[in-house]
């Protein structure tokens, strides 16, 4: 996948058939991060922080439900993926691109969690099992798509 051109406030990406399938497979997983993973603070609990934690969880749950709906609508829109010869043209405006970035990163971080939070700096290897092996692909592929979207936004 790469940015083909910017037209007004639209980005047109060219995406191969296999890439498109991979992207859609990734997006089907959203949301993947458990809500409880998000903590508002590392230190004090107390009444106020407990209430803040609840607020954070509610806000994230609402945002995810909205994102999931928006994702289904967006992907189902006619002409979103326009077939051209052996590939497709995916058209997104900057807002949609920004939003897709958030969605992809949720899947990336969620995949990382399912792989046991591997960390090269701490020599913590991937805890690969037959059940979670596919998340390695999703984690790396999400990063790939994120990089393409980030370079488009940078331009």
């Amino acid at each position: 996948m790469h940015l083909l051109r910017s037209e007004g406030d639209q980005f047109v990406f060219e995406i191969g058939k296999r890439e498109k399938r991979l992207l859609l497979d990734i997006l089907k997983l959203y949301p993947l991060i458990p809500i409880a993973h998000h903590q508002v603070t590392r230190s004090g609990v107390g009444d106020k922080m407990e209430s803040n934690q609840r607020l954070l969880e509610e806000a994230l749950a609402e945002q995810r439900a909205g994102n999931r709906k928006q994702l289904d609508v967006m992907l189902g829109e006619e002409g979103r993926f326009k077939p051209v010869k052996t590939s497709f043209h995916l058209t997104l405006n900057p807002h949609q691109t920004e939003w897709l970035l958030q969605v992809l990163n949720d899947v990336r971080v969620g995949s990382w969690l399912r792989l046991g939070q591997p960390d090269e700096k701490k020599a913590k290897d991937i805890n690969l099992t037959p059940d979670n092996a596919r998340y390695l692909v999703f984690m790396e592929a999400s990063a790939y798509f994120e990089s393409v979207l980030l370079s488009a936004l940078e331009k």
Partner: peptide, 10 residues
């Protein structure tokens, strides 16, 4: 170790 550096900057 999971968030891309460019992503965090963005």
């Amino acid at each position: 170790p999971v968030n891309l550096m460019d992503y965090v900057t963005h």
